[in-house]
Design a protein around this nucleic acid. Structure first.
Lengths: 203, 203, 203, 203
DNA sequence: AATTAATCGAGACGGTACGTCGGGTCTTATG
DNA sequence: CATAAGACCCGACGTACCGTCTCGATTAATT
């Protein structure tokens, strides 16, 4: 999500082990995927990463921080595709968002955002980061659409983005367990209906 | 959400303490509100409710169940209002949803749904219950709209509901900490834009 | 060493498990005997006693306290025997002290006393308890000796006790590992020489 | 205790830092004095000595070795004084032993011996070293006494030494905390009684 | 002068134990 | 019977220390 790696290295002691960060992230996300938050254990993460617990705690202060960082580091971007038409672009984006949210890591990102938004003190700037993540995909498409003339100047872009993203969230929220394994055709169908709707409205 | 209290109580022994259920719910939600999920403990709930742990476990089998029940019992319903027009009804509903999600308990409902949807084994039937909760409000409005003739027969009602609810979620997701204190005017303005959009679309 | 068990039991909750204290002491002393202080682990003690760690920590605040208590509870008394003569009594007492100190638990008592005497803040009243333990055996013998007329009135009893006990400590201090397995004859011989000396002196 | 410094140093690399050994010993004994064995930490010793941990581990293989070496290096010798009479020599020796054991470092020597004697595998040859230390002082006095004719040929020298040393240990064992600050007069008085006793016995 | 080799400080490493805390169960005495 | 109190077993938490290791920087003796 961001490059935490600073520039210069002046460190005096033994340098931090090279691949540790990556291996710990992998281990954390595997554990999280297999056991969920309740069964997510620092000991297990350290063991699976082949690393001492102190190595983990040297980098992240607690369980929350580690999972947040892991999810932040690994959660993909919702990529936009240039299909040549505004409608096509929207369908592509919504489809990618669907796939993103049906993946445990992507869903975890949402879960953490929801936690963060409700928490007394903001959990890092996680919410902002996720918001940014969501809007960056859409804005590219809007720019392209405007350039092509597919998109009227008075369209409420924010509303469109909120509706499209939100509707996908609503639909994935209604799926749990095995029903979350949607085929590409299912996704395409759902996306088509949604994009239809946001383009035409209920009028 | 549902009537948890069973039917008759012919019990032979000491009757269940009168206000216990309520006091435990209150305690649970206060604890949850103050400390979040991570700091939410059964011990603290029992202590705050002035109740033994066994009394709690006699009624709910575990932490999840208690929190789910508490949230279910206390989370208001997203009420619909009959304003006389379909557009007015939608604005009323969306406004209520806004207020619901900006309240800690309402937000907790969402948080739990998100957890439940992603969990390996479904967390009770919480997901279904929430889905039901969301759709019941909308369906009343649709029925009224259809009766009034405000609503064409070929409108994708599900898409409309998903977009409207989803967009509200997206917007509240972008608010954290103090920015979650929205005035009624703010809400009304956001709602107006949203309803405008879902009624007309981007076409 | 002392009866820690209070008088009445008014306790309201679940009563403390019956044999736990005993089993924990046994486990602690076995672990201590097998692995020494360095290898003495609370986890291992709890496991060996078939008890949760919290059960241990509910009773003793830390490792030191547990070992101290265990040693205090189990370390036998240096018994005195009535042989009919003052010399015989002294030999019996010194022999028992020898056996006591050659036993791992008895030696641990000494080890802890030494720690306690040197510690910044006194380790409980362990030092006093041990002092008391040592003097009680001797005083009985002195009383008996005086009654029999074996013991002149101007004898420095404290000096005698210190010399006898101290000499036995010095001798066991010089033994380590396998050489600590002394036969009864060895002990008797050493004791005879010692008692001879304290009765006659170097004059 | 012994000269740890080897003979010639032709070493090719960077020579060992000059005062390091001394500063580490000081730091070790201060830490040990302040916190006792339980709170005695290699990290703290290194920090206090202003030295890297590797510098410590380059010289001693582990915590035991360091403390043993430090105590061995710093613990004074129980010096004997030639007072002209056997009795006077004994009193001088016992007084010095008293002072030695009331000093934290001297007492640590005893503590380590006690640990060593009870340990499964002997802690270095510490026990032997201490035994040697104790007997060397006495043997000089005995030799002098024999030369002067103060000392009969049939006296059990070992018993005498064991009693004298042992009695002093017993007395210091009974003192903890502030009561360990004995004035020279107190010591002289105690010593007089003890020497009286070992010279005349209880007969 | 360049090379070599030992040591230094700092501090991260994999482990392991600490003492704490919470979950969910169980056992008592008291309603 | 239900309750409150609270001890039970279990296992994870986050911390601290052990003894090892890997750095870059010194510091001589040897080339």
């Amino acid at each position: 999500m961001a490059s935490p790696e600073p520039l210069a290295r002046k460190a005096r002691g033994r340098p931090r082990k090279a691949g540790a960060e990556e291996r710990i992230f992998d281990a954390a996300l595997e554990e999280y995927g297999e056991r969920g938050w309740a069964g997510f254990t620092m000991d297990a993460v350290a063991r699976r990463a082949g690393v001492g617990k102190s190595t983990v705690y040297l980098r992240w202060q607690d369980k929350d921080s580690l999972l947040t960082a892991a999810v932040g580091a690994r959660s993909g971007v919702i990529e936009d595709v240039d299909t040549g038409s505004f409608r096509g672009d929207l369908e592509g984006l919504a489809g990618n968002l669907f796939r993103y949210l049906l993946d445990p890591i992507g869903w975890a990102t949402l879960r953490i955002s929801v936690d963060a938004a409700g928490a007394p003190e903001p959990l890092g700037r996680f919410t902002d980061a996720v918001t940014e993540l969501h809007h960056s995909g859409a804005s590219v498409i809007f720019a392209r659409g405007a350039a092509r003339g597919d998109l009227g100047p008075d369209v409420r872009k924010d509303a469109l983005a909120d509706c499209l993203y939100g509707a996908v969230i609503m639909q994935t929220l209604g799926l749990s367990g095995d029903s979350r394994r949607l085929s590409d055709e299912d996704i395409a169908e759902r996306v088509r209906v949604l994009v239809d709707f946001v383009l035409c409205g209920a009028g």
